[in-house]
Design a binder for these strands. Structure first.
Length: 164
DNA sequence: GAATAGATCCGC
DNA sequence: CGGATCTATTCA
């Protein structure tokens, strides 16, 4: 059972929490989502869209359920899923994935493993053939500050499955 | 046009 | 803790 538009249109913090334990499917590979972070609109200084729309972050302003993939630090890609209503820029960063007994902890790592690149930006996960999120199990989790940012550390917008 | 910080990872 | 590696955005 694939997650649809209504799921991703919910408030970003709800999506970031509820997507834990669900299964990300990409090109025949799949893994359970075990770590996420929320990036929400104009009042979040760490959000790429905080300063308004640019060519890079444009997809964050679009419909919920689309992929937002960006290139960072000259060598890594990061996968996000757009949330909230069209016009409101927000997304959930997929930071960790459990694939069998392997743990892909880190957004750059899981994109490298799944071979997700900028080619996979702005894809609609609610109707793509080989890129979507499937319903998984309910899990227990914990909230912490987000990783790797210099602004907005006061917010507890990182969600991680506990115990791993 | 130039400068710089950046939602990272790995090895030492 | 520093190096790899590059680009989107900002600044002059």
């Amino acid at each position: 059972m694939r997650l649809g538009r209504t799921f991703f249109e919910q408030p970003t913090l709800i999506v970031a929490q509820q997507i834990l334990g669900q299964v990300l499917c990409f090109n025949g590979m799949q893994g359970t989502i075990v770590e996420t972070e929320a990036y929400i609109g104009h009042d979040d200084p760490a959000c790429h869209a905080a300063q308004g729309k640019t060519p890079r972050n444009a997809v964050m302003f679009g419909k919920a359920g689309y992929s937002y993939v960006y290139f960072i630090y000259g060598m890594y890609f990061c996968l996000n899923i757009v949330t909230e209503k069209e016009g409101f820029p927000a997304a959930v960063l997929i930071r960790g994935l459990r694939v069998g007994d392997m743990l892909l902890n880190g957004p750059g790592k899981l994109c490298r493993y799944l071979t997700i690149t900028k080619e996979h930006n702005a894809i609609d996960l609610t109707c793509s053939e080989n890129f979507y999120v499937r319903k998984g199990n309910v899990v227990s989790y914990e909230r912490t500050p987000r990783i790797g940012i210099s602004k907005g550390q006061d917010k507890l917008w990182r969600f991680i499955v506990r115990p791993l």
